[in-house]
Computed example of a mutant assay.
Amino acid sequence: MSGANPVGFGENRIDSLPDAISKVLKLFLNSGITEDEEVEEMSNTSVDICPSCGKSTFVRQEGCYNCLDCGHSKCG
Rank of each mutant, 00 (worst) to 15 (best):
E35I: 07
P18F: 00
M42I: 14
N66M: 12
S56R: 11
G76L: 09
T45A: 04
S16V: 07
C53W: 08
N5W: 12
D19I: 14
D48H: 13
S16P: 08
S22Y: 04
G3P: 03
E37G: 02
M42Y: 12
L27Y: 12
S31R: 13
V59N: 03
I49L: 11
S46V: 11
K23A: 03
G10V: 03
P6W: 11
F9Q: 04
A20Q: 07
S43H: 15
G32T: 07
V7G: 00
I21H: 05
C75Q: 08
Y65E: 10
F28C: 08
P6S: 09
I14V: 10
S52F: 10
L27E: 02
K26E: 08
M1Q: 09
G10F: 12
Q61M: 11
A20M: 13
M1C: 06
P6Q: 09
D15T: 01
S16H: 10
V7Y: 09
E11H: 06
S46C: 00
G54P: 05
K23R: 14
P51H: 14
L27F: 13
T34I: 02
I33M: 12
G3S: 08
Q61I: 15
E40N: 14
D48E: 14
Q61D: 10
V24Q: 02
S73G: 02
H72E: 05
S52Y: 10
G54S: 02
M1I: 06
G76N: 04
S2N: 11
N66A: 09
A4L: 09
L25A: 08
K26S: 12
S46P: 03
S31T: 06
I14L: 05
E37D: 05
K74T: 07
V59H: 06
D36G: 07
D69V: 00
D48G: 05
F58M: 00
D48A: 07
N30Q: 15
S16Q: 05
E37F: 11
A4G: 10
I21Q: 04
N66D: 07
E38G: 01
Y65R: 01
T34C: 01
L25W: 12
N44H: 13
P51M: 10
P18S: 02
N12T: 00
D19Q: 09
V47S: 02
S56Q: 11
G76V: 03
C50M: 05
S31I: 02
T45F: 06
P51I: 13
D48L: 09
D19H: 07
K26T: 13
C75P: 02
P51F: 08
F28R: 15
C75L: 01
K74V: 08
C67E: 04
V39A: 11
S16G: 10
C70K: 00
S43C: 12
L29H: 14
